[in-house]
Amino acid sequence: MRLCTLALMMTALLAGCNVAKTDFPVRAAAIQTEVEEMATNVTIVKLTADNVSAFSTPRNLSGSRTTMASPSWDYRVGVGDILDIVVWDHPELTMPAGERRTPEESGLRVQSDGTFFYPYVGQITAKGRTPEQIRADLTERLVEFIPDPQVEVRVVGYRSQAVSVTGEVKNPSRQPLTDVPLTLLDAIDAAGGLSEEADPRSVIVRRGGRSFTIDLQAFLEQGVGANNPVLQSGDVVSVPKLEVEEAYLLGQIVRPSTIDLTRENVTLTQALTRVGGLKEDSADARGIFVFRKTSTGITVYQLDASNATAYLVGTSFVLLPRDLVYVTSSPMHRWNSLISNLLPTLTTARVADDISAN
């Protein structure tokens, strides 16, 4: 929404500015003198084959490796779990399931104190133990009553532990943990999968008072195994909505539009090509400008494409989100006029964007 508002504001304000025509060559000193009265610092850079690499830094879109631990999973029984216990050759100690009763319905529930009652031996501690540990304890106690007891213990109702999956998934839900490890991808799939607006690169997992941002896309596309961790009881998975990142292309362009930079790096030449290029009958190829907000002000990059080989320079200049590309028409007015009219537009849009962000 913020980006949409910003784009509409820029388009509307630029449409009202008579700034389409420019004098060349651009004189940086004159421009700086004219904008000194504004609370904005302006840097002018003419892009050439010699300097373009210094001003172009592609964003790192490859997946980073999460720092969240992913320990091996060994299910431990908790309060509320249902246990099914079988003592072979001793049907009197085995809870009958019957045709109309499932093992879960006829099983033994772990009570709030973490124990369950079993004939002959009384209370058995279950909380925090694996089924194998419970079996060993029960076997040792039954030896006093049954020679060489053969005992089987299994969990038939997993009710004590779960993770929550929220945000941009089709069916936000609580996913129970079982003896089968539940990975991040498994949990999201069990919640119906990602919605169309989900951002798989910024999945948040909250664990033990800490939050971890995980690039699940890196696991899917690059096989970064750490980014598909095994979840633990109490984890909360939140899938955020994808925030579209765009650059704006205006002026003497065949199809003024926005370019989606969310999932890829796009160069200046690529962006111009995708919107049909410059208008042959009205664009001035010397006046391809990229306005970029920085921490110290605004930097304006100029590409003089009067020679077609300059587009090769453009293939090395990577656009960043919120860049504004503006193409002027045949020269009549001074470049200073272009800057003087565009900078208030950019400044106003920046203030509006900051307000909407708050």
Rank of each mutant, 00 (worst) to 15 (best):
R2E: 14
R2F: 12
N18D: 15
A20V: 08
F24R: 07
A30D: 15
I31D: 04
E34M: 12
M38Q: 11
T43H: 12
T48P: 09
S53A: 14
N60E: 12
S72A: 14
W73M: 01
G78M: 08
D89G: 01
H90F: 15
L93G: 09
R101P: 03
R109Y: 02
G114I: 06
Y118Q: 07
A126V: 00
E132I: 00
Q133P: 06
E140C: 00
R141H: 08
L142A: 04
F145C: 02
I146N: 06
S160K: 02
V163S: 00
T166H: 10
G167P: 11
E168C: 11
N171G: 02
Q175G: 01
L177R: 00
P181C: 02
T183D: 05
D186E: 14
A191E: 01
G192I: 05
G193P: 12
T213W: 03
G223S: 07
S238H: 09
S238C: 05
L242G: 06
A247E: 08
L249H: 08
Q252T: 06
T262K: 06
T262I: 00
E264A: 14
N265Y: 03
N265I: 01
T269S: 15
E280L: 11
I288A: 01
T294G: 13
G297H: 01
G297Y: 04
T299V: 15
Q302D: 10
R322C: 04
T328L: 06
S330H: 14
I339E: 07
S340G: 04
T345M: 11
T347F: 08
T348H: 07
S356H: 09
N358I: 11
